[in-house]
């Protein structure tokens, strides 16, 4: 037998349940904490955003109409799969500078967070929905419906826990998303895509792109078929202004959350789920 040569993984993007390369053919180098080359990641373009949004839109009705219990099962399943592949995640986290203990607790908390939102899937409707008192012979109630296709700029410095923490509340509420991964640490996001892909999450519900926010923010924010945009890192004034202006075109919901500590209570909150819900109020006539 000849000596085994290590087979390195090609990190591609995750769109519609597949792992294509960027249509642009471009890539950028990703380094580990020692400054050694870790991977070549796809440098996504405008057209990748377009394709991902189209795919996400196609998956929306199916996902939104899954019953709450089923969405909970699937989120729980993601947690199970992540648990099964924790060694790989811990190894990858340690490559980018996490200590053994930090890596372990990052994975632990990510798993817990998925289960936390899995639990919320069949409860948020009761907590946030309402029966409203009205002064006429109507039964008046408000229920929540998912906002739709959500763009997400994943946190730059928390490539696993931060990523999980922004995706989970969005999909738990029946939305679909197109995520732009951490630019410096995209490998974790693609590893997580592999977990999603083996967790009964229908293709297109979560799509993960890698690349530069400066290039893609314009396309995320101006796309008329993107209904909401979530980001947690501070953006420079120009980009923020551009995003706000573009969002006005289709009255896109822009959600900015100031979260730096992904272990804090703020980062695990049913109100994050509520941010991506629209309220529908119904007046139903009743006789007495």
């Amino acid at each position: 037998m000849s000596e085994h040569l290590e087979v390195l993984k090609t990190y591609k993007i995750y769109v519609g349940g597949n792992f294509p390369r960027t249509e642009s053919g471009r890539y950028y180098k990703v380094f580990d904490s020692e400054g050694d080359l870790l991977a070549n990641a796809c440098l996504c373009s405008r057209k990748d955003v377009r394709d991902a949004v189209k795919t996400a839109r196609g998956a929306f009705n199916g996902w939104a109409s899954r019953n709450a219990y089923n969405r909970g099962q699937i989120l729980y399943r993601i947690a199970e799969m992540l648990e099964g592949r924790r060694a790989e995640f811990e190894k990858q986290l340690s490559r980018i500078g996490f200590t053994k203990a930090e890596a372990e607790s990052d994975v632990n908390t990510s798993i817990d967070r998925l289960i936390y939102y899995a639990g919320w899937t069949d409860k948020y409707q009761q907590v946030f929905g309402s029966v409203n008192p009205v002064a006429s012979a109507h039964f008046n109630f408000s229920i929540l419906e998912p906002t739709g296709v959500t763009g997400i700029f994943a946190p730059e410095n928390s490539p696993l826990l931060g990523l999980v923490s922004v995706i989970a509340p969005v999909i738990a509420g029946g939305n679909v998303c197109v995520v732009l991964a951490s630019q410096a640490y995209p490998t974790l996001s693609i590893l997580f895509a592999e977990v999603l892909n083996s967790s009964d999450v229908p293709g297109g519900v979560v799509n993960i792109l890698t690349g530069k926010k400066e290039e893609l923010a314009e396309h995320f924010s101006s796309h008329m078929d993107v209904n909401a945009l979530l980001y947690t890192d501070a953006l420079n004034t120009d980009m923020k202004k551009m995003i706000d202006e573009n969002a006005s075109l289709n009255v896109k919901r822009i959600v900015k959350k100031n979260i730096e500590d992904w272990y804090s209570d703020k980062s695990q909150d049913p109100y994050l789920l509520l941010d991506f819900q629209e309220t529908k109020t119904t007046w139903h006539p009743v006789g007495f």
Binding site: H219, S222, H223, M224, D225, L249, N250
Partner: peptide
Amino acid sequence: TGQYQSPDY
């Protein structure tokens, strides 16, 4: 317009 459109409109 330069913006990708949505069937919603």
